[in-house]
Amino acid sequence: MDRKRLLLAEDDELLASLLNYRLEKSGYQVSLSNNGKEVKDQLGKEMPDLIISDIMMPYFSGLELIDYVRNELKSKTPIIIISSAGNEENVLSAFDLGANDFISKPVSPAELIVRVERELAKNQ
């Protein structure tokens, strides 16, 4: 079976390395990015099976990212948003724009993996 490709856009190095490690351990192929611009470039070239993105990102926010994927690239790739605690407004906007799921900080890696699995299963 092909390894599923995930794009993880998270500017917090700490969280990114932890999640990267856990996701790879769970059998995913992860490409990491710490800024929105880079994510945009990557997505233009190749669409992963699922996108995990922090809402607050330098240069290109998670919300802009969703908008870009859904409206410009016209892709239905599942997007899971990572949001800071107590940032309800952003989460609602994310759902409005077409995010599939969200997880709030502090992120439990195990929980994220379950959510990733669920989204991918839905899509098959």
């Binding site: 500017d11 917090d12 700490l14 969280l15 932890l18 607050m56 800071s84 605690a85 900080k105 502090p106 992120v107």
Partner: peptide, 12 residues
């Protein structure tokens, strides 16, 4: 402060 928040949360 935004930048450091999630790390702090991770370490509880």
């Amino acid at each position: 402060s935004h930048k450091i928040k999630s790390g702090l949360a991770m370490l509880k």
